[in-house]
Design a protein around this nucleic acid. Structure first.
Lengths: 219, 219
DNA sequence: CCTCCGTCTACTGTATACAGTATTCTTCTA
DNA sequence: TAGAAGAATACTGTATACAGTAGACGGAGG
């Protein structure tokens, strides 16, 4: 019975998920070359689904194509991150604006829960949990924007952005306390249904994040 | 000798280009299902490169996956276009802002040329040329933003947006005259190196475009 | 006439095979 | 010892083969 459900996914999707997770969790080093045959062997699948997954990750901006064929894990420069944040600050601020206009009560409840969870993770110094719950808060807001393009593009940027992200937390514990305060502020603005204020709060928050990120990466 | 250059492209890339053009030029109808074997036969290639091209177009948002497998050409609703413009207005305005800060003289010259070409295409009522040169102007500005993420995402949105675009021109010839005036205004702002003004001009322009688009699509 | 069930077909998902080209390694020469 | 040429190897790009499944079609039972 549950087998029927299990079988409802394709190998190419599983490979895609596996590779994406591996890249984002740092199990492949930035700049490292990916060999189709090796992955095929590791996962016990043929190269066909792998090639398709690779093409998708390429479009996600997580893999670079070598002109001669073959792909490497993306290795963003400081300059790339500057560009990324230039766009991210605009997109997520816009998302906060729309979220304040459009989100429903259940989403507001989710945000509140997320903030509580974040406080908890901070108190127990759980790095992995912090990263997860932080991502989660932003995702709730972005999805509350009700704009599929904004959602997919923001999440794509977030993916690329999550490379050295753990360094932010490790670099200075107070970063996350500040982030929590930012989140609360954003949450209040959205709950008050004040789009412009929500937008400004988010803008400030992403700029804080940018500064923390840059400080953490300078190493 | 030139053969060496010619051979520097893969079938999957050619298939990708072919399918993308076909979709954007309306040679496949929105919602139409694409059959791998048919395309393979048409292009005299195997299904392998086609499958990879399809995965890329899927990520571009030009093909939808059917849960049972198989893909259909995307068929955006009015609501989708509203979402699209919500994002596009923000991204392209931001691009204009950065372009005013960062573009060099050669890019300014390109913009000027593009405007002249547009005036010419209007005077000879060349629909296809108009679409091309209009796209071209926006592309110059977006690239002048020097932000790779902004560039790729904006061009992606533009791709999806180019579906019913010809209807704008066909609907009312004055739309393009207005667009030309908008372009001039944007150009002056960028040449004056006035980022904020460039941003506002672009914002107004995209909003005009949105109105013209919606009016044209209501049919 | 409808609908339920089976078969048949068309298509996708995945594996495998093969050719061609980078890349690496080796060996020879200056 | 450095550098170049050539062979061996490692990968990719593409084609083909095969299995499984969804949907179409058609016939039997109500």
């Amino acid at each position: 019975m549950s087998e029927l459900i299990v079988k409802r996914t394709t190998l190419k999707q599983q490979v895609y998920d596996y590779l994406k997770d591996s890249i984002l969790l740092g199990e492949f080093n930035p700049g490292e070359r990916l060999i189709e045959e090796k992955i095929a062997e590791t996962l016990n699948v043929s190269r066909s689904p792998i090639r398709e997954a690779v093409r998708m990750l390429e479009k996600d901006g997580l893999l670079n194509v070598h002109q001669t064929g073959g792909v490497t894990v993306v290795n963003p420069t400081i300059e790339d991150y500057r560009s990324l944040y230039e766009v991210r600050v605009e997109m997520e601020s816009l998302a906060a604006y729309f979220a304040a206009e459009r989100c429903d009560d259940s989403e507001i409840a989710l945000m509140e829960t997320s903030i509580q969870e974040m406080a908890h993770e901070i108190s127990i110094h759980n790095l992995k949990g912090l990263l997860r719950v932080n991502f989660n808060f932003h995702e709730i807001i972005v999805r509350a924007s009700r704009n599929p393009f904004l959602i997919s593009m923001t999440l794509q940027l977030r993916g690329i952005n999550s490379f050295y992200r753990r360094a932010i937390v490790e670099g200075d514990p107070r970063n996350m306390e500040n982030a929590l305060r930012d989140h609360e502020e954003i949450f209040f603005a959205i709950r008050k249904r004040d789009p412009d204020f929500a937008r400004e709060c988010m803008r400030k928050h992403i700029e804080h994040d940018y500064q923390a990120f840059m400080k953490a990466v300078q190493k």
